[in-house]
Nucleic acid binder design. Structure first.
Lengths: 233, 233
DNA sequence: TCCTGTGAAACGGTTCACAGCC
DNA sequence: GGCTGTGAACCGTTTCACAGGA
């Protein structure tokens, strides 16, 4: 199984201001897998399972028991030898690690098709990500509402980020403006960005994590994979 | 710079049927970078540059000259010592490597919000990915048209894949049905899948590459990164 | 001199194997 | 006996450093 890599370009190592033991660097792949384990656990819980072994958790994630144990061991000892992990307790631990014990306030920049799709995406609010504001630079769109949320002028972005206490900014804008919107968002105090423009952002001076969702790159990797060694036909 | 990984789970190593020298395995990160270099080259070309050094190419991609040279050297020797790479020639090489010298026929499964956003996404057809058919299982949608493309019944998927000679299938469907749609698409002859459902697909028996675009996972990785070592506030 | 192409070293993530606890 | 937690071995990727051609 090949695993093509991506996307989330994050901040430099934690470098704690005080001389505390610097938290061990956690690899990107570990985080993705944690997110996956959490989903598996939730399915298990729904089915009434109360306990699960590392091997079972690995099962439909395409990984191994050893990997699951290594991943989890970076955050603590959550299992019982001879028994496995408690489904409910482990879920809660993972939710805490992934930051799902709080809700996140999201600003959507760009009220086009992609913006609309994301705004309606039910999994976001289920998981604690609330779109609390929308901006667009098209005067025809400004003033309309999506549900209860008004579309405001993109000029007001900085002020909205501060007033609404925005954590995350989703960039659903054309590639040409993505970089400048990103920089404005970061200076106004955004803690993280998710970029759908097909332009990889150059890191703004203030280093915040950026999740790059580059659909074209994804398709190119797909056609590459098909051409070499993919199904002969 | 952290680089969170993802997404494209591909076929097993090439294993050429004849006993040819098996093509060297190319890492997923290399492919992503190639895709990125291509975009940089196109910008350079638009600006009239005719030659570029590995260091310059690395510049706004957050990587190094050495990495660029290693990546490219896996496919051949495209540069001139003392000079650098010819912008036009290297672009063409990369386009060939990434499979952009042909067009790809795409079936969109799911005519909801996400489907609509992808259908309209201009970068797809610019890059050679043509959405030539749409299916949905909602009878209200079947029969409508998006541009010139009619939305057909999801029952007809297999038959469309064969008749329309579909290469890639984009799954913009709810998580619960993603797995079964994926399996049907693969048995009908799809060469690759792109999955937007927040469910990681278990590999169907017939192994085809799958690009997983898991937006929730992306957000979770983002909030994780913010919580550790992200901006203090 | 400048910049590529590439072996060799360094690094980091995954797998292995087993000691330790239930 | 079963399963976790973890040091050690392994392996792939990135970085280094330099030989060699324009």
């Amino acid at each position: 199984m090949t695993d093509f890599t991506s996307h989330l370009t994050g901040p430099l190592p934690p470098a704690h201001p005080q001389g505390f033991a610097v938290a061990k660097r956690i690899s990107a792949s570990t985080i993705r897998r944690l997110s996956f384990y959490l989903r598996s656990l939730e399915r298990l819980r729904a089915r009434g399972a109360t306990t699960v072994s590392s091997e079972q958790l690995a099962e439909d994630g395409g990984t191994t028991g050893a990997q699951v144990r290594k991943d989890l061991s970076q955050f603590g000892s959550f299992g019982k030898r001879g028994t496995g992990y408690d489904v409910g307790a482990l879920s809660e631990h993972l939710r805490g690690i992934l930051g799902l014990h709080r809700r996140w306030r999201v600003l959507l920049v760009g009220a086009g098709r992609i913006g609309a799709a994301l705004f309606e995406y039910p999994n976001f609010s289920q998981r604690g990500y609330d779109c609390v504001a929308i901006v667009d630079n098209d005067p025809d769109k400004v003033g309309r509402r999506w549900g209860t949320i008004p579309i405001q002028s993109a000029d007001r972005m900085e002020c909205i980020i501060e007033a609404e206490d925005i954590d995350l900014v989703i960039l659903a804008v054309p590639g040409e403006v993505a970089q400048s919107v990103a920089e404005r968002a970061v200076s106004a105090g955004a803690l993280g960005l998710m970029n759908f423009a097909p332009t990889q952002l150059r890191r703004p001076a203030t280093d915040v994590p950026v999740a790059e969702v580059n659909l074209v790159m994804e398709l190119e990797a797909l056609s590459f994979a098909i051409m070499r060694g993919g199904r002969p036909a």
